[in-house]
Structures are given as structure tokens and as C-alpha cells.
Simulated assay, not measured.
Amino acid sequence: MEPADHSAPRRGPPVTSTPMLSGCLTGVRVLDLSSFLPGPFCTQILADLGATVIKVEGPRGDAARQLPGALHEAANRNKRSVVLDLKTDEGQVLGRALAAGADVLVEGFRPGVVDRLGMSYPAVRAVNPSIVYCSVSGFGQTGPLRAAPGHDVTYLAASGMLSVAGGWDDPPPRRPGVPVSDLAASTYAAIAILAALHQRRDTGGGAHLDLAITDAALSFASTRADRCLDDRATATQHLHPSNDLFEAADGVRIAIGAVEEHFWQRLAALLAEEVPALGDPRFGSADGRRTHGDDLVALLRRAVRTRPAADWLAAFAAADVPAHQVLSVGEARRSAHVQARGIVADSDRGRHVVFPVLRDGAVMGTVRSTAPELGAHTEQVLADLVAGREPWGP
């Protein structure tokens, strides 16, 4: 989520420029015991698609609320916040009572913690045999590292992802600015949950899903190893010298993606006007461009620096060469293309990129509410629960 632009008029209900579908997961009830990013972003995906999500927080709240930036707001829209102290007997009884009416439970603790909180899979399954229970942890519920602490950067390191160079002259390790392992885990968790719910329609039974953030990162990283998990892959084996970031004369960076031969030929024809050495026969094949990649990248950088970005972007577009200016997240959100796609919703507390898929021309994700204040729904939910009324709300 991007913070609100206070220079613009404040807006009321969320809006998009593309029609939105009614929630595909309307009626699915999700109990979220997770914090930080991997679990909450998973349950937000489900919430964007219409699921009802109750987020259970301890008395001090999700630790993400205390972090700089807007991490909590970015991963907790469309949820209700209920404060329960699961370290107490009363809190555990109420937690299991909520779980009894849920279709899905997501927890993000280290293995063993939910046992102490009275919310383990066996404890929850005893009151709800059909529950789809998803455990998201750094290293999984099994293995010698199962109890080890970690965060995104350590999971990236453990998965091999930091060994993969992002550019020809950008040697690893280099940490990406986006928490890739956390978001990979969120995505796989959502897919696994939906698959388990689909299977439950036939079997009636629930499941315990064990998702390790490091496993998810390894799955992503393995797409960059030509022989899958082979250590013999070279540092540049997956790279193309003409598929990288280049700085124009005005300091603006341009991403160029000339991977296929026809794109390279078009790019070389344009840039050789500025740097004739790009026509060297050494660069006439993909193998040759890799073999002489250091020289080629240096020439490409010299060529792109001869003109401002706007000139190059216009030339690349006219020649049908894959290229785009490197944008900030805010610039990307405001771009005419993203606005036309309709995946950005505005609210009085900021801007949100909803579930970014269109179905039959309509946006699948919606923003019904922004991230709740800590405990905003505790009183109503617990009053309904104790009174035997429906606690999940609309």
C-alpha cells in the first residue's frame, strides 16, 4: 500500500477504473494468528477475494504495527482485529471457539509455540475436524533448522537466492529491495489453502499445511539454475548482457530486455549509430555475446549514456525493442497503464494494489476496509461468541 497523498482531495469509498467482481471466496472464514508479512499477506490475498478474515493479535498487537513504513497497513486490509491473550486459559478457550467456526487457520510461529498457546493443529482439529490449518515458518515443521530464528534476508541466504546475480556486472550477493522469500511463502500458502479447500469439498476432511519460507524461496531460486539445483552453473549462465539496467545521459535508468535474437538485432542497429563497435562480429550470436559479455556490457553502457532517456525510450518503442524507464512504486501506480488496468483502489487512508488479476475484464480483488486499529472488533466479536451468536460478521 502507498501512503495517502495529502496534497490531493481525500477520498471516501475505494474506487477503481475497472469493474470489480463480487468476492470469489465469499463465505470462507479465515482465522489469522500470524504477524509481520508472510502469513498476513497470504490472508490478505484471501480477504481481497472475499474471504472473511479475523486477525487475532496479542495485547501488544502485531509487531509489524511498530515497524517503520506501512508494513502492517500493506498486509492487513479487509480484516477484523480481535485482541486475545493466548498465553491465558481464557484466551485459549476463546481462540479455539473462534477456530471451531473457521474454514482456515493461518499461524506464523516457530514450531512448538502454538502448542504452548493452546492453538496447535491437534487442539484445533479436536473442535473442527475439517479445518485447513496452515503453518508458515522460516524452515518448516521438520528438519534440523526447524527451530532456528530468521527473517527474509536469512531465508534468502539459506535458499541460494542471494547467490544469483541480477545483472552482468552486478556480482552477488545482493539483497533485493522487496522481501522475496516472505512474499513467495505468502503466495504458495494461499495456493495451498485454496487447493486444500477444493479437496475438502470431496473428502470433507481438513489438512495441516507445512510451509517453510526457505522452501518457497528455493523454489523461486531454482528457476535460475539451468540444470535445476546443480552447483556447476556459472555466475552469468542465466544472464544476457543486453538484458539489464542502463543509465541514460540524464541519469535516468532504463531497463532493456533484448533477449531474443530479433530484439538484439534491433537494439544493436539503434545503438551502433552511437557506438559502432557494437557491430563487432564477436557479438553476432548469443554465445558470442555471453563469451564477450564484459566488453559488450561496457559498450552498451557507453551507448545508452549518449542520449537522454526520453530520446532512447521513443526510439526503442518505434523499433519494438523491450525497454522501460525504471519507476518508483508510486510512479508505477500512477502510470496510465496501471490506471487503465484498474488494480489500484483509493481510500481515505491511502492507495492499495488489490489482488492483481482480472477475470472476464473485472478486477477480482476489492478493498472493503483498510487495516484495522488494534482490537477494533474485539468487543463485538467476543460478545457474539459468548452469547452464541454468529461472531464472523458480514
Score class of each variant (00 low, 15 high):
141 Q>E: 06
142 T>A: 13
142 T>F: 15
142 T>C: 14
142 T>P: 07
143 G>A: 03
144 P>A: 11
144 P>R: 07
144 P>K: 08
144 P>Q: 04
145 L>Q: 15
145 L>I: 12
145 L>D: 10
146 R>D: 07
146 R>E: 07
147 A>I: 13
148 A>L: 15
148 A>F: 14
148 A>S: 13
149 P>M: 10
149 P>C: 12
150 G>H: 04
151 H>S: 11
152 D>T: 04
152 D>P: 05
152 D>N: 07
153 V>Y: 11
153 V>F: 10
154 T>S: 13
154 T>V: 14
155 Y>W: 01
155 Y>R: 01
155 Y>P: 01
155 Y>F: 06
155 Y>G: 02
155 Y>T: 03
156 L>N: 09
156 L>Q: 12
156 L>C: 06
156 L>A: 09
156 L>M: 14
156 L>F: 12
157 A>L: 10
157 A>G: 08
157 A>F: 07
158 A>K: 00
158 A>F: 03
158 A>I: 01
158 A>N: 02
159 S>A: 09
159 S>P: 03
159 S>L: 07
160 G>I: 07
160 G>A: 08
160 G>E: 04
161 M>R: 04
161 M>Y: 05
162 L>G: 06
162 L>D: 05
163 S>H: 14
164 V>D: 08
164 V>Y: 10
166 G>N: 11
166 G>R: 13
167 G>A: 15
168 W>D: 01
169 D>A: 15
170 D>C: 13
171 P>C: 06
171 P>Q: 12
171 P>L: 11
172 P>A: 01
172 P>F: 11
172 P>K: 01
172 P>D: 00
172 P>M: 04
173 P>W: 09
173 P>C: 10
173 P>K: 09
174 R>P: 08
174 R>F: 14
175 R>I: 15
175 R>Q: 14
176 P>R: 07
176 P>M: 06
176 P>I: 04
177 G>M: 08
178 V>T: 14
178 V>N: 10
178 V>R: 14
179 P>I: 04
180 V>Q: 11
180 V>S: 09
180 V>Y: 11
180 V>M: 13
181 S>D: 08
181 S>G: 14
181 S>C: 12
182 D>A: 05
182 D>R: 02
182 D>C: 05
182 D>L: 05
182 D>T: 08
183 L>A: 00
184 A>T: 03
184 A>H: 04
184 A>L: 02
184 A>E: 04
184 A>F: 05
185 A>Y: 01
185 A>Q: 01
185 A>T: 00
186 S>H: 01
187 T>D: 06
187 T>A: 10
188 Y>Q: 14
188 Y>P: 06
189 A>K: 03
189 A>V: 02
189 A>Q: 02
189 A>W: 02
189 A>S: 07
190 A>S: 08
190 A>M: 02
191 I>V: 12
191 I>K: 02
191 I>P: 01
191 I>S: 03
192 A>K: 01
192 A>F: 00
193 I>F: 00
193 I>G: 00
194 L>K: 11
194 L>M: 13
194 L>Y: 11
195 A>S: 10
196 A>M: 03
197 L>Y: 06
197 L>D: 05
197 L>K: 09
198 H>W: 12
198 H>C: 09
199 Q>L: 12
199 Q>S: 10
199 Q>A: 13
